[in-house]
Design a protein around this nucleic acid. Structure first.
Lengths: 237, 237
DNA sequence: AAAATAGTGTCTCTGAGACATTATGAT
DNA sequence: ATCATAATGTCTCAGAGACACTATTTT
């Protein structure tokens, strides 16, 4: 038998495989706090509980698992978030009462304003402040997935400006710094934060200013490559 | 209908799911070079080609996907590697001719000596120097998985001593430094390397010395927590 | 003594932390 | 003028890079 003959006689659906889902922890920054998008489960199991946006791969229409999660996020928010990164994959016997199941979990970031309108139209989708998440009874192991995402994003805030993708297109340095401060859980040295940004040349100065109590703040935009940039020296934790 | 009733009538194997496999890029350090473990495929598809060790989840006996990969690595090497970390999950339509498939890929490290005897007994398993891997026709997308693992391990060598898990239990500082040098692709400042190790207090001085051409070298052991430690300042790339 | 490898001393320089100071607007 | 917030000046200090130097073994 050669490979062609083997494949002709092979039907993968005759073999049993764990359940496979794709989920995302989508963060945004709004009202001086970080928030995570939760979705009310419409079906069993865990019907009625809140959980992370996600779902099953559509073998017909999704070419990759990345496409699956982008599709799911677009269903819930109306747009595709500007930052999406694989977090981890959890697979075990007990996480889903239906049986052996695996989820590929992503971390994503989006500006609140970019999906505000769409989310207001939907009953079963809401932003929850990270201070309140642990108090909700989340479906499956979604609380643990959130915690992992949070930890990873916290780490990233020490050596990158990835958290900036939770802000709108145009933002002030104080806003960016505050996102980092919320993640790290302590105030940062203003000067240090600005110095490293300046030196790394990651921002575009729009030339515009935002007037709003006190000295007007310069408005910046992220350069495209800023998602990949890593500072050689971390901020203190 | 309540959740109990739903579950009673639910059989997950009635739903089709992508093929799910678990693979690992297992590195070791031997003969002054890093090597990766490859396995000759005994079955279709890609029969006869070399690929990463891995396989399917055993829903009866594996409680987690981590257990799956540990089981597979033990089958091939005779032991469970001291360092195993999830790398990424790749899932798409075309990577496997059998259809939509997903692999959860791990990076692992082991001492050459710890599995030398076992590997010599097996025909279809071999270590391949990272300098030669690209010249072999690897199965599926395993070359890309290797490359991702390599890049991640290179990054880690800049801010951790994780690469040390590719060495035997007891090793010299020069050996540890050389593993890092191979990964980073340039020689490191002896002094810098030792200074940061000393300061981080990650090693146990065994008190023993290895005699072998020139001044005898002190022998060290990794402290258990050294896998998690991150230097606040990276080495230059 | 020479070769080989292990390990140290010490200088420079970058950049984070600390914190005081100045700048620019609204009221 | 005062308040609020944005932005800068400047000192200290840790630690990486560079590289010369010393130490301990074998041949």
């Amino acid at each position: 038998m050669n490979e062609k003959e083997f494949l002709a006689g092979y039907n993968k659906n005759e073999y049993l495989s764990p359940l496979l889902t794709v989920d995302a922890v989508l963060f945004t920054y709004h009202e001086n706090t970080l928030k995570v998008l939760l979705v009310e489960r419409a079906n069993f199991p865990e019907k009625g509980k809140w959980g992370l946006p996600g779902g099953f791969v559509d073998e017909q229409n999704d070419k990759t698992i990345e496409e699956t999660i982008l599709r799911k996020l677009k269903e819930k928010t109306g747009v595709i978030p500007p930052y999406v990164e694989q977090l981890c994959t959890v697979g075990n016997k007990q996480r889903d009462p239906r049986g052996w199941s695996v989820t590929v979990c992503y971390t994503a970031l989006i500006a609140y304003q970019d999906c505000e309108a769409h989310i207001e139209t939907v009953e079963s989708v809401k932003w929850v402040s990270i201070d309140d998440i642990a108090t909700l009874p989340l479906a499956f192991d979604h609380l643990q997935l959130y915690q992992q995402a949070r930890e990873r994003l916290q780490q990233k805030s020490l050596y990158s400006i990835v958290p900036g993708f939770a802000l709108p297109d145009v933002f002030t340095l104080s806003e960016l710094q505050h996102v980092h401060e919320v993640l790290i859980g302590k105030t940062l040295q203003n000067k240090s934060f600005r110095r490293r940004l300046e030196q790394a040349d990651l921002l575009i100065d729009t030339g515009e200013k935002r007037h709003e109590r006190g000295r007007p703040a310069n408005l910046y935009r992220l350069k495209p490559q800023s998602a990949e940039y890593r500072f050689i020296r971390n901020l203190e934790f």
